[in-house]
C-alpha cells in the first residue's frame, strides 16, 4: 500500500461533506418529516373527533325529530280543538244573528201592520164620515163630532 497525502485530501472532503450535510441537508428534510408526522397525527385526531361529533349530531337529530313529532301532534290537536271552538262560536253567533234578524223582521211586519191598520182606520173614518154626510145631507162638523169619530175609529 502506498499511503500518501491523499489521506489528507480525502479527510478534507469527508469533513466538508459531513459538515454540509449536517448544516444544510439534514435539518430541512427532518423538519419537514416531523411537521408531516404532526400533521398526520392531527388529521387522524380530527377524523376521530369528527366521527364522534357526527354520532352526537345524529343522536341529537333523532331526539329533535321525536320532539318535533310530539310538538306537531300537539299543535294539530290544538288546531283541531280551536277549529271546533271556532265552529261552535260561529254557530252560536249565526243563531243569535238569525234570531235577531227574525225579530227585526217581525218588528217590521208588526209596524207595517200597525201602519196599515192606522191607514185603514183613517180611511174608514173618512169613509164613514163621507157616508154619514151623504146620509145626513149636510156637512158634518169635523170638530163637533171629533169625539164620535175617534170612538168609531177605535172600534174599527
Amino acid at each position: 500500500m502506498n499511503m500518501n497525502a491523499t489521506l489528507l485530501g480525502q479527510a478534507i472532503w469527508f469533513l466538508a461533506f459531513v459538515y454540509f450535510c449536517m448544516k444544510f441537508v439534514w435539518p430541512p428534510i427532518i423538519k419537514a418529516l416531523e411537521e408531516r408526522r404532526q400533521k398526520i397525527a392531527e388529521g387522524l385526531n380530527a377524523a376521530d373527533r369528527a366521527e364522534r361529533d357526527l354520532e352526537l349530531a345524529q343522536q341529537k337529530a333523532s331526539e329533535n325529530m321525536v320532539e318535533a313529532k310530539a310538538k306537531a301532534a300537539e299543535i294539530i290537536e290544538q288546531a283541531n280543538r280551536r277549529a271546533g271552538q271556532i265552529l261552535e262560536e260561529a254557530k252560536a253567533q249565526a243563531r243569535v244573528e238569525g234570531e235577531r234578524l227574525v225579530a227585526r223582521a217581525q218588528g217590521e211586519i208588526e209596524q207595517e201592520i200597525n201602519q196599515a191598520r192606522e191607514q185603514l182606520r183613517k180611511e174608514v173614518s173618512a169613509l164613514a164620515l163621507a157616508g154619514a154626510e151623504k146620509v145626513l145631507g149636510a156637512e158634518v162638523n169635523r170638530d163637533a163630532h171629533k169625539q164620535l169619530l175617534e170612538q168609531l175609529a177605535a172600534e174599527l
Binding site: 499511503m3 500518501n4 491523499t6 489521506l7 489528507l8 480525502q10 479527510a11 469527508f14
Partner: peptide, 8 residues
C-alpha cells in the same frame, strides 16, 4: 484506494 478508506 486504501488512502480513501483509511482516511475516512
Amino acid at each position: 484506494d486504501p488512502n480513501v478508506t483509511m482516511s475516512m
